[in-house]
């Protein structure tokens, strides 16, 4: 199925738990099937993502109503798949830096507010433009733009911290 991987990826990023993401994806696809007659043309991907995002948001609301572990608690979850960035640079140093950056980004994503995370994932992970995100989330374009920049700003701080840490380690290595 063409869209199942991105849909699963979206719900996984939004919910943080593979089991919850699996349930939400399955439920979203069943709903899409049942409501296929409500699809009025346009982007089928956006339509599917809207259903999946709604499903994930419902689950987040359910979690908020009942006491449960936070999303960051899944950071050490052994069930959480090991998401690896593809290594495009053959140099070991660059690989190490990339792995460090990836880990830092993963951790930082989990600390974002749910609605910021949803938008940055839709935009930067799934490549949607502002209008599509507005369609999926039901938010105004201005709100999408604002939340996206705030989320990226927060992630930028993480990257800067990671880079500074890496530079400090390099300097330390040069002195020796």
């Amino acid at each position: 199925m063409r869209f199942q991987d991105p849909l699963y990826g979206l719900t996984l990023r939004m919910l943080g738990s593979p089991q919850a993401a699996e349930d939400a994806t399955q439920e979203a696809l069943i709903r899409a099937w049942q409501r296929i007659d409500t699809f009025r043309g346009g982007s089928f991907k956006s339509w599917l993502f809207t259903i999946a995002a709604n499903q994930a948001r419902d689950e987040l609301r359910r979690r908020a109503r009942r006491p449960s572990t936070s999303l960051s608690a899944h950071a050490d979850d052994p069930e959480m798949p090991d998401i690896d960035l593809p290594d495009t640079d053959p140099l070991p140093e660059a690989q190490a830096e990339q792995a460090e950056l990836r880990a830092a980004l993963e951790a930082a994503l989990k600390t974002l507010p749910d609605d910021w995370r949803e938008i940055v994932v839709l935009s930067d992970v799934h490549g949607m433009d502002y209008r599509e995100i507005s369609e999926v989330t039901g938010l105004a374009l201005g709100t999408v733009k604002s939340r996206l920049s705030r989320a990226r700003g927060r992630l930028r701080e993480v990257i800067r911290g990671s880079r500074e840490l890496h530079e400090a380690a390099e300097r330390l290595g040069d002195r020796r």
Partner: peptide, 18 residues
């Protein structure tokens, strides 16, 4: 940030067929 996030889900595969 944008390019790193774009690559983030390349390793994510649905665990089963839906």
């Amino acid at each position: 940030v944008r390019s790193a996030l774009a690559l983030l889900d390349e390793g994510v595969r649905a665990p089963r067929s839906f």
